[in-house]
Design a protein around this nucleic acid. Structure first.
Lengths: 139, 139
DNA sequence: GTCATTGCAAATGCTTTGCAGTGCC
DNA sequence: GGCACTGCAAAGCATTTGCAATGAC
């Protein structure tokens, strides 16, 4: 049973079959689907679900802080359900696969005061880039 | 005189007035224009320049490694001419202003072997997020 | 029964592309 | 003078929006 669905119910979400299916698709770690991929996977279970509903639902999950938007390539945004454990992303430059990773320490502390331009800094997003094992082997 | 234009000439670039104007617009530090902003600024000097040419030119500058693509907000990509000094970005969550910053050390070293999933890592992009002084004052 | 949510279809924003004409080397 | 580059206009994605119909509570 999904923790996510429980949390949403507790927040008074009106639970439609469309929303349930979207939430179920977004379950697990190392999950980083585009809106279109979420729609395709949701439509496999609920064929009449529309793209607009998927976009609406994803937008609400992001507002509720249950899902994180990730843009690693300047193309379609990806949606990451791993919102309750701070993490960063490791991306393959060749195939685009994404893994959730946990660097040591807090990246924010690496920025000296002299480089903060008076900003109040709240977070740091890190994208590590490289080549994954399968692509390295294929080369 | 622009270093950038010199380098492009040395690489055998065909130097048209359109390309010259685009390269001149992209000169300086803390410069992070969208393609549309580049087009507007270029058109101020060369009114008949087309968006397609601006996009073509920006794409080539990126391929040549003279300009970096930055996507901080999942909307339009921004173009950063500061490609020859490693740096990261500090973004205001309210107004979107971007500053080039230099954290201490190499962010890549913060990722332990156990978190590398067999990848060969080549770089790390860091986006620090917070509120800039003007927005903090306006709040 | 009410009102939020859905689906459709059209609109929007950003970017790319095809192709005929232009002008740099 | 050849061929890369330009401009135009149309096409292509990703995403948002307006509105009538639907269905959860």
């Amino acid at each position: 049973m999904s923790d996510l669905l429980d949390r949403l119910r507790n927040r008074g979400w009106r639970l439609t079959s469309q929303r349930r299916v979207v939430a179920e698709v977004l379950d697990g770690t190392h999950v980083h689907y585009t809106a279109d991929e979420v729609h395709a996977r949701a439509a496999a279970r609920l064929p009449e679900i529309s793209r607009a509903t998927v976009y609406n639902t994803l937008g609400e999950l992001v507002s509720l802080g249950e899902v994180i938007e990730v843009s690693t390539d300047g193309r379609a945004k990806r949606y990451d359900p791993n919102a309750h454990h701070a993490h960063q992303h490791l991306v393959c430059d060749r195939c685009g696969v994404i893994r959730d990773v946990h660097p040591t320490g807090d990246p924010v502390t690496d920025l000296p005061d002299a480089e903060r331009y008076g900003f109040t800094i709240s977070s740091a997003d890190v994208t590590y880039r490289g080549i994954c094992p399968s692509c390295a082997q294929a080369a």
